[in-house]
Design a protein around this nucleic acid. Structure first.
Lengths: 326, 326
DNA sequence: TTGTAAGCGTTATCAC
DNA sequence: GTGATAACGCTTACAA
């Protein structure tokens, strides 16, 4: 195993550790040409590999940043993460992606682990249940950016969101314009702000059109239970003619259900989904998607985090990126 | 920012650093109950968070492992990575995923970076162009497992592969059984073993059936150039009636092309793809997929790496997981 | 231009 | 049971 250390190189080159360190950090302004060469050679022959851990300990930065995703199975999350990774790769930082799996305990564990391992900052898709932790980080001035979901208003933090209510409102409006009256809304448990905001948009659109909100048309269920609830929805006397899926996972559940029941998309039912799915353009079905500008959002988050890491002070702000329907 | 260190806790609790360390490592066999409580209290009031970096430096392990993926845009890669992450999560190690983007230079950079940062081991989807580096790691006894693609035979390493040639052979055989004679093979540059092996299976199947291999039916191109080459393929006098896409990216390019040209899948052309794609089951098109047991492969790789990390010696071996067509 | 020595925050080995 | 003290491998004043 590797054991060659800077001291070995120094010895081999007949110089001191500090000189080697200078060399490694490319500070050869005032370095003798021969010293430089001797070091170079020693490194080669010994096969020396610097230990960044030791450096990090000293410098108090690891060039790692963490991304804690509430649920990685949302395509949106992976798109955003990828954008963040790309940004940091350009700045020679490495992103570490952790999946909290919608579990606040796991989220907590990850936040603590990453902080213990001294990552330089965190971008979090919050589960929303760890306010104290969030607050703690913010108060300590630890670089952090929240993504996708709101955290308690009182926390002064950088957040990146999309216009959930607005976009949903417009989409449902579209259904209404087309003459739909029986519009279903399918969503996972309303624990998080995105889902609540989208529901709000749905309700507002109906209200605005003078359509009564029928609670039976609002299907709230965990993915495993969704099928059963959909079963109930589609066995109602007055079946919905349009359906809004509040995210990609809900959408998947719906499509699977429809396939099974042989309900024809476009004919028996119109569908709008909040979120993009990979290869959406491959489907030649008449589904509309509300697409968040994932890459832009990711880049912005990365940029905001990077500024904090570089200690460029700036008051926290919430950035809202509008989504587009296609 | 956080600055509370073990020394602070020790001082506050009126004990020595070593005792605190004992406490943190849950070695309270021989620890006075009151000392324990004093430490506990000091930690609480100071809000002490241990610094794992320092510990890692001392213990020479970081509880990080790296995954270097040749190209993360292959769905297979993300499936495998996820399985690996899951495995290590159970063992309290964190995976760091890096995307080499099919670029050997980038791969090299990542390998060096991760090793410099002292990750405990590496699972690599090799680009294949960094033999010296690979060799170097193996010779130094650094824990490493190769995934998906073969590296030079001479290297005695753990590898996880699928039966590329066999599976392709069978698939093409199926085309032939159905009466197809003009079977195209679409692939990205034949730089890597998987693609070569799949091509080998294709050729063998044709040969075995006494069908002459027509080089014009073998489309080898980078994704951006693929469209042009497909254009050429489908403007031949004798158009292919069946097409084998050597991976998901090639498949995507093909489907886009077909859509544009309004060529009907199933009617004008039959399609088999090597690789799964997300939501494949949503498509109600008559496409066959050759699916690698990604999770199993990932778990196996993780397990093999973990054994190495735990210093459980074992001679390197190549594991071949059969794929299945659906 | 190069060397000395003191950290960085832990853990580990011994004494006591 | 607990505490000095020396590592771990590097960076960084400060000296020389």
């Amino acid at each position: 195993m590797e054991k060659v250390t800077m001291a070995d190189v120094a010895r081999a080159a007949g110089v001191s550790k500090s000189t080697v360190s200078q060399y490694l950090n490319k500070r050869y302004e005032y370095m003798g040409e021969k010293t430089k060469q001797k070091i170079e050679e020693a490194i080669k022959t010994l096969g020396y590999q610097p230990n960044f851990l030791a450096r990090s300990l000293k410098q108090k930065r690891t060039s790692f940043i963490g991304i804690i995703v509430a649920n990685i199975t949302h395509y949106f999350s992976t798109e955003v993460s990828r954008a963040i990774e790309d940004f940091f790769h350009q700045h020679d930082l490495q992103a570490i992606v952790c999946n909290a799996d919608d579990d606040p305990e796991k989220e907590k564990k990850y936040i603590e682990m990453l902080r213990a391992k001294q990552v330089d900052g965190l971008i979090i898709f919050p589960t929303g249940q760890n306010h104290d932790l969030y607050k703690n980080m913010v108060e300590q001035g630890y670089p952090v950016v929240f993504m996708d979901r709101k955290v308690e208003e009182s926390l002064k933090v950088f957040s990146i969101l999309t216009d959930n209510t607005e976009s949903t409102y417009k989409a449902v409006q579209r259904f209404i314009d087309k003459g739909h009256k029986n519009i279903a809304f399918v969503v996972q448990p309303l624990r998080v702000s995105t889902r609540l905001d989208r529901l709000e948009g749905y309700k507002r659109a109906l209200k605005n059109a003078g359509i009564e909100i029928n609670p039976d048309y609002i299907v709230e269920a965990d993915i495993p239970d969704m099928k059963a609830k959909l079963e109930r929805l589609f066995s109602m006397e007055v079946k919905p003619t349009a359906l809004f899926a509040a995210n990609d996972r809900a959408f998947m559940a719906v499509v699977e259900f429809l396939k099974e029941k042989k309900i024809q998309l476009g004919e028996d039912l119109e569908l709008i989904v909040f979120d993009n799915i990979p290869f959406a353009h491959l489907l030649d079905t008449p589904i509309s998607f509300i697409i968040q500008p994932a890459r832009e959002m990711g880049f912005k988050a990365a940029e905001l985090l990077y500024e904090q890491i570089k200690q460029e002070d700036r008051t926290p702000e919430v950035f809202v990126f509008p989504s587009k329907m296609i």
